[in-house]
């Protein structure tokens, strides 16, 4: 029998203001892979992540997590939303934010225990942010804020991680921290789906790649799928130069 996919999406259609943004999406994620989700602006990359997380109403289709409906399997998924989706002037510190990853396990009345705080500290350490635990979040740089979000997803101790543009606008130190983290997650056989913008680094960072432009264009191992032709299919002629640059990088590796 084939193993059950961490995430199975079938016949998924999602609309925003009555306009469909995702059409008939079908795929099953392979277990234990780092998967890049790539496509032009407005291709529906974030929408796909949100639809999987149950943050968007579905017009059709379903999402299954290890063969089960999402509601019973939320604890299996770690989530990193886009950094801009929250108000960073909110009066809490980095440790508070990271501890939120544990809230799903606490029940209706439970409070974060010493263990939860210790786990949150440990996850901050994994992203190199332990010294900033008690810093108010508005005093962190963009990259540091991103690492706080990653640490929060780690505290969820999930099997699958969905990350919405973790590399967007971050400094080199943060980029390296994220890459190291992705490697570590892979070592632990976690499945990671990452919305990614930078075509130059796709080959380097991801085992598999999903090319999306409202429809699922191609999905498979990066070395087979991430080709100039497929990128042209995804982006149209517009990003030809960018695609060629990516190809060049691919050949060098």
């Amino acid at each position: 029998m084939e193993p059950v996919a961490p995430i199975e999406v079938h016949d998924l259609t999602v609309a925003y203001r009555r306009k469909p943004v995702l059409w008939n999406i079908d795929f099953s994620l392979p277990e234990g892979k780092l998967i890049g989700l790539v496509g032009p602006n407005g291709a529906g990359k974030s929408t796909l992540i949100k639809a999987i997380m149950g943050l968007m109403p579905l017009l059709s289709g379903y999402v299954k997590i290890y063969g089960e409906p999402l509601d019973t399997m939320r604890h299996k998924i770690g989530y990193v939303p886009q950094r801009e989706s929250v108000d960073w002037d909110f009066p809490i510190n980095a440790l508070d934010v990271v501890t939120m990853g544990r809230y799903g396990r606490l029940g209706l009345f439970g409070r974060p225990s010493k263990d939860d705080k210790a786990i949150a500290m440990e996850c901050l350490r994994k992203v190199g942010m332990q010294d900033f635990a008690h810093r108010q979040i508005s005093q962190l740089s963009g990259g540091q804020q991103q690492r706080v979000f990653l640490a929060r997803a780690l505290t969820q101790d999930a099997s699958v991680y969905l990350m919405d543009e973790p590399f967007a606008g971050v400094d080199a130190a943060t980029e390296k921290a994220i890459v190291d983290l992705l490697k570590e997650l892979k070592e632990h056989r976690k499945t990671v789906l990452v919305v990614h913008h930078d075509l130059h680094t796709v080959n380097e960072y991801f085992d598999w790649v999903m090319l999306l432009n409202m429809r699922l264009v191609k999905f498979g191992p990066t070395d087979q799928i991430f080709t100039n032709d497929n990128l042209r299919l995804t982006y149209g002629g517009k990003l030809l130069l960018l695609a060629e640059a990516a190809e060049k990088v691919a050949r060098q590796l």
Partner: peptide, 11 residues
């Protein structure tokens, strides 16, 4: 603070 994350952890 983060309504999306709230939903993600089942709140």
């Amino acid at each position: 603070f983060d309504p999306q994350m709230a939903v993600a952890v089942g709140i």
